[in-house]
Design a protein around this nucleic acid. Structure first.
Lengths: 150, 150
DNA sequence: CTGTGTGCAAACTCTTTGCATAAGT
DNA sequence: ACTTATGCAAAGAGTTTGCACACAG
């Protein structure tokens, strides 16, 4: 994956939600474009950046008339994550969130609502990181800004 | 709860692990100093700053010959948290960690080991926080530096 | 004594897994 | 056809809860 021109046959949007492109996307990630995966990917990538839990996505799929089991949603989310299409977000609490924005950025977390909002990568700067202990390297720095009602 | 001088009767250490002081500590937090709570508090505050899960603490208590049920450990951790004696740490994943260091500071998280290490509060600086959405205020900023084997 | 805390086991939530069936190439 | 994905339901981990008994004040 490196030097293709922006797809030029008929579009200008980075991701287009139609099955065509989603299928391509999946195929490139080594995943068979099955009906369920296409449905889930469409939901994920047709509304801009999103933060979903398995349950939420399952609900949406069901409401959209797509029949997908919750187990498959879980499987699919993890497959997408492994393929680099999603990033798992680490908020405390019980539910696991997945973010369609895979680039470097941080989050507001609205307590009591369990809602996540992106903070653009550029906005926050972290300085003064101490040296990690021997034998370890920094893989990722997560900044979560917790918000409560004013 | 507000204006008491630093405890002046006979000590200079902030927390002393013996039952005496732990009992005091609990009492001031509005918690009855029961055998179990004293045992758990002693484990928590006698070794400097610690990061524990309910299971870990339960194990330690058991090994130390104290009989405490897991349910009580959970209850106690939450009571301590409410009383401001502990802070819950938000790492993704399934387990909940509690930190005996209640002051502002951040964490290294060692993936694959599930271990937490404090980063002194002073070390890290976060700048460029965007304005939170209307009606919300920042309650806390968590920085988690994820580490992997080099 | 009186009220709060504890222990146990059952319930609950979120997530994963095993295996037979269905769908993709 | 051959292989991989899906669905179901059951199992699993971590955590919470309800209620009888025990202990602190």
């Amino acid at each position: 994956m490196s030097e293709h021109e922006p797809i030029d046959d008929h579009g200008e949007m980075p991701f287009s939600p139609d099955a065509q492109n989603v299928g391509e996307l999946l195929r490139r990630s080594g995943l068979r474009p099955t009906r369920q995966r296409i449905a889930l990917a469409s939901l994920l990538y047709s509304k801009g950046d999103r933060h979903v839990t398995a349950e939420l996505l399952h609900e949406e799929a069901t409401e959209a008339g797509e029949q997908v089991s919750l187990a498959t949603v879980y499987n699919t989310l993890h497959q997408f994550q492994t393929a680099g299409l999603l990033r798992e977000i680490s908020i405390g609490g019980q539910r696991t969130y997945f973010d369609t924005n895979v680039s470097n950025h941080n989050h507001f977390y609205i307590e009591g609502e369990g809602r996540l909002v992106d903070i653009p990568s550029s906005a926050i700067q972290v300085s003064g990181l101490p040296q990690p202990p021997e034998g370890l390297r920094v893989s990722h720095v997560d900044v979560v800004v917790r918000l409560v009602k004013a």
